[in-house]
Amino acid sequence: MEHSTPAICILIILLLSPVLYCIRKCRNGTVYYLRKIKGIDEINFSVATSAEQGKPIIFTMGMTDVSPLLYACLGILSHVSKICAKVNIPVIVPLRDPESLALIDLTLKSAYEEKGKLHQYDSNRIKYLSSDQLAFASGYQGIVHREKIGTAFLFGSFAAESLILAEAGSQVGARQIAGTVSAEQIPFFITSCDYTLLGEELFAVSAYLTKDKTQLGSLRGQDIAKLVLLTLIIIGTVWETLSLHFQYFESGILKNIFSMSW
């Protein structure tokens, strides 16, 4: 779709207004229920285990470029690096996209500064490996084996190299927690990692960890937006089914509504 249609404008309003409404309500004091995500405890537990073993942690964002997904991953990186700063173990961040280098550097520095450990921060732990997918995977494998990683965090968008990354950690006996929006890579992470966050749980973890009211309200708004989508799907399915039997219901009407231009 190169350009919006009137129906798309209406859909955008329908999907985004619950988000804005819930953010406003949350900021005004409403408390929304958030179910426990097992991955959160796993994150804290894994970092603690690495600290006991004295092994470093690796945090990779795979193929994620500068996008909303990167910001969600930075939220988790911030939380992990704060714990690492507290327990004094290094966190290594191999990169594929040089554009995100400055953002990751700022995130780590802020986390260390908050814990009063800025003197321990070493920007050389952020390593740009390669923009090529497989060269990046090769470099990641090398780091994991050489540094004898204790815990590996794989959050973001991944392509075919996901299994190579996960297997590398598995070969050194590292605890691995993954979260990806790349649905076709989820099976690979499930087989190789100790815990996998599916799809939007990755975005939810960031809200869960920071307890930020904006993010919590946004989570609630997203759920309502998904209900809106579900309603549209049900309406469309029922309408199309009835159109097979009753002339009154014109087939393809919803599709035509969405493709009507200005």
Binding site: E2, Q133, S157
Partner: peptide, 17 residues
């Protein structure tokens, strides 16, 4: 392609109304 997201770009932009 074997890359993710590339085909979606062609699908989305290599067409007009």
């Amino acid at each position: 392609t074997g890359l993710t997201g590339v085909f979606s770009s062609w699908l989305q932009f290599f067409q007009t109304t």
